[in-house]
Lab assay of single mutants.
Amino acid sequence: PDFTLHWNGITIHFKGIDEEQFRHLRELLDRGVSLEELEELAKELIK
């Protein structure tokens, strides 16, 4: 499924991740993950 997340004025689209992965990403963003960390995470998910 696809998810869209609005965070700090940025709209991020996640394609092909499951709800569990999306929930994990939201928790990280709510905790204050940096954009660099988010990019690293995205690379991991894409593999």
Rank of each mutant, 00 (worst) to 15 (best):
K43S: 07
H24R: 14
E19F: 13
L41T: 04
W7K: 09
R23M: 10
K43A: 12
P1R: 15
A42L: 14
E20C: 12
R31H: 09
T4K: 07
E20K: 14
H13G: 04
W7C: 03
F22V: 03
L5A: 01
E44M: 12
E40W: 09
R23F: 12
H6R: 09
G9Q: 02
S34K: 06
F22E: 01
S34L: 06
L35Y: 08
N8H: 08
K47L: 14
P1N: 14
E44Q: 10
I12H: 03
H13L: 10
F14Y: 02
E19H: 12
S34E: 04
T4G: 01
A42V: 13
R26Q: 06
E40P: 01
K43Y: 08
H6M: 12
H24C: 13
L25C: 02
E20I: 13
E37W: 09
K43Q: 11
K43V: 07
L25T: 00
L45A: 06
L25Q: 00
L5C: 03
F14H: 00
H24P: 01
H13V: 15
R26T: 06
E37V: 10
I17W: 03
E37D: 09
E27T: 15
S34G: 09
T4Q: 04
L38V: 14
E37K: 10
H6I: 10
L25M: 06
A42H: 08
D2H: 13
E44S: 10
T11I: 09
L45H: 04
G16T: 03
D18F: 05
L45E: 02
I17M: 05
D30I: 14
I12T: 01
I12N: 00
E40A: 12
D2F: 13
A42M: 11
G16C: 06
D2A: 11
R31S: 11
D2Y: 14
D18V: 04
L38E: 00
H24V: 12
I10K: 12
D2W: 14
D30Q: 13
F14V: 05
G9T: 01
L28E: 05
D30N: 14
I17S: 02
E27F: 15
D30Y: 15
P1Q: 14
T4D: 02
G9L: 01
P1D: 10
K47G: 14
I12F: 10
K15L: 09
L45G: 03
G9R: 01
L25Y: 04
F14D: 00
K47T: 13
H24A: 12
F22L: 05
L35P: 07
F14Q: 00
L29I: 08
H6V: 15
F22D: 00
L5S: 00
L25F: 11
R31Q: 10
V33R: 05
F14I: 08
D18Y: 04
V33S: 11
L38S: 00
F14M: 04
R23K: 11
H13N: 09
H13E: 10
A42S: 05
N8C: 05
E20N: 13
L41D: 01
N8G: 06
G16V: 05
I12K: 03
L25P: 00
S34Y: 04
G9E: 02
K15I: 12
I46R: 07
V33E: 03
T11D: 06
K47N: 14
H13M: 12
E27I: 13
G32Q: 04
K15R: 09
E36G: 09
P1K: 15
E19L: 12
L28K: 05
W7T: 02
P1I: 15
E36R: 12
H13A: 09
H13T: 14
G16L: 06
G32S: 05
I46L: 12
P1A: 13
L25S: 00
F3G: 01
D30C: 08
L45W: 14
T11S: 08
L5K: 00
P1C: 13
I10R: 14
F22G: 04
L45M: 14
H13F: 11
D18E: 06
L28A: 12
H6T: 14
E40I: 10
W7Q: 04
W7L: 10
E39L: 14
H13I: 15
D18M: 05
N8D: 04
G9W: 05
H6P: 01
L29S: 03
R26G: 03
R31Y: 08
G32A: 07
V33K: 07
E20M: 13
K15P: 08
E36N: 08
L29M: 07
I12A: 02
L29Y: 10
L45Q: 04
E39S: 08
I12W: 05
E36A: 12
F3N: 02
G9Y: 03
T4I: 11
G32E: 03
H24Q: 13
L35D: 02
E20H: 15
L28R: 06
E40N: 09
D18G: 08
N8Y: 04
L5G: 00
K15Y: 15
T11Y: 08
F22T: 01
I17F: 04
G16Q: 06
L38H: 00
K47R: 10
E36Y: 13
E44Y: 06
G16M: 05
R23Y: 13
L35V: 11
G16W: 08
Q21H: 06
R26N: 03
L5D: 00
L29C: 07
I17H: 02
D2K: 11
F14A: 01
I12S: 01
L45Y: 13
Q21E: 04
H24S: 08
I17E: 02
T11V: 10
F14T: 01
K43C: 03
V33D: 02
E19T: 09
Q21A: 12
A42K: 03
E37G: 04
A42N: 02
L38K: 00
E44W: 06
E27S: 15
R31N: 10
S34N: 06
K43R: 12
K47S: 14
G16I: 06
N8S: 03
S34R: 06
L35N: 03
E39A: 12
R31W: 08
F14W: 04
K15T: 12
I46A: 13
R26D: 01
L38I: 14
R26L: 10
H13S: 12
K47E: 13
K47A: 15
E37T: 11
W7E: 01
Q21K: 09
W7N: 02
F3S: 01
N8Q: 08
R26C: 05
S34T: 12
G16Y: 08
F14S: 00
V33I: 11
V33G: 13
N8R: 08
K43H: 08
E39I: 14
L41P: 00
E20L: 13
K43E: 11
E37C: 02
A42G: 04
I12M: 08
H6Y: 11
D2S: 14
K47D: 12
A42Q: 03
D30F: 15
I17D: 02
L38P: 00
N8T: 01
G32W: 07
